[in-house]
């Protein structure tokens, strides 16, 4: 329960901090950290415009998308704080749950019959397919390392007792940061602040959403960042720490993560569209390094 609350609270500020960081670096006037929250509240107070081309699919999609990501939050533990739902193999369920949300959003974008949205939908489908192996190899390696197969036990038994662990920790965090970027269609893959529809991925998919639906989609973005931030924090927080230290560390890590995203976005240019697949596959390659490291730690590969 506490982990759910922590993730929900941190999600409120996440995008605000990113925006603020970017503004600071660009020496622009900074909006409030809660500006995204105000935006969403305003959206909830609005009506909606639906395209005549769309069908029931378009109306269902944001609901399924939101429900899938919200349910995914319930699987995430933080430090010694248990997840609400946990069973063996829950990370498979987690990954496929995000999949059904994506499936619905993609077909909803195609439902509008707009060429631009088709483009975004198609890219989203390809990139999320390419990023899938990285996630599985990474979690699989940790599962092999700890001999546990649910998020909760996985992170509970993650011990920092060998030097090689740092390779796992650093590589995992690196991969998770970028998985979060790909999943949220952020910088090296997609530029959320671009003004050209032809170069967008996620933003162009939701051109026709408005009001309540758009608000849900925005909240999903916060939640997704917060989920990955929580996963990253689990690599760092040790469950032997006192509870308030864990909570403080969690918020610290979320803050650091959002600052990182902000800084990355401010300084990095977007990849060329055709370079994106290659770049995403690179994440899988790094995950394989983690896998090999785990094989060494568990003495399956014996050096010397």
């Amino acid at each position: 329960m506490i982990s759910l609350l922590l993730i929900l609270i941190s999600s409120l500020f996440f995008v605000g901090i990113i925006v603020k960081t970017k503004a600071k670096i660009a020496a622009r006037k900074m909006p409030s950290v809660l500006q995204p929250v105000y935006d969403v509240v305003r959206l909830f107070k609005k009506g909606a415009v639906y395209s005549q081309t769309t069908s029931a699919i378009f109306k269902m999609a944001p609901l399924v998308y939101f429900a899938s990501v919200f349910l995914a939050v319930l699987f995430i533990p933080i430090g010694s704080q248990k997840a609400l739902l946990s069973f063996d193999g829950d990370f498979v369920f987690f990954a496929y749950l995000l999949g059904i949300g994506k499936f619905m959003m993609i077909i909803a974008a195609m439902d509008t019959g707009s060429g631009f949205e088709g483009m975004g939908a198609n890219r989203e489908a390809l990139y999320s397919m390419l990023v899938e192996p990285a996630f599985f190899i990474l979690v699989g390696s940790v599962a092999l390392f700890t001999n546990n197969v649910s998020f909760q036990d996985l992170f509970l038994h993650l011990k920092l007792d060998t030097n090689l662990y740092y390779i796992i920790g650093i590589a995992s965090i690196y991969v998770f940061v970028y998985i979060a970027m790909v999943e949220n269609s952020r910088m090296p893959v997609d530029d959320p602040k671009t003004h050209l529809e032809l170069t967008m991925v996620h933003e162009v998919m939701i051109l026709d959403n408005s009001g309540f639906d758009l608000a849900l989609i925005h909240i999903v973005t916060w939640l997704k960042f917060s989920i990955y931030g929580a996963l990253i924090s689990n690599f760092i927080i040790s469950n032997s720490w006192a509870i308030y230290w864990q909570i403080a560390a969690f918020f610290g890590i979320q803050l650091a993560f959002s600052l990182t995203v902000g800084i990355l976005e401010a300084f990095k240019a977007r990849n060329k569209m055709e370079k994106n697949p290659q770049w995403i596959i690179m994440l899988s390659a790094i995950s394989i390094v983690v896998f090999l490291t785990v094989l060494i730690i568990t003495e399956k590969i014996i050096l010397n």
């Binding site: 009506g47 081309t53 309540f212």
Partner: peptide
């Protein structure tokens, strides 16, 4: 959850105008 969101949205959209237009 999906059902709940559906009910919430129906309630929210009853209080606001819902328009139809061409795809942007």
């Amino acid at each position: 959850l999906i059902g709940l969101l559906w009910i919430l949205r129906t309630w929210q959209q009853k209080r606001h105008t819902i328009k139809q237009n061409t795809t942007w």
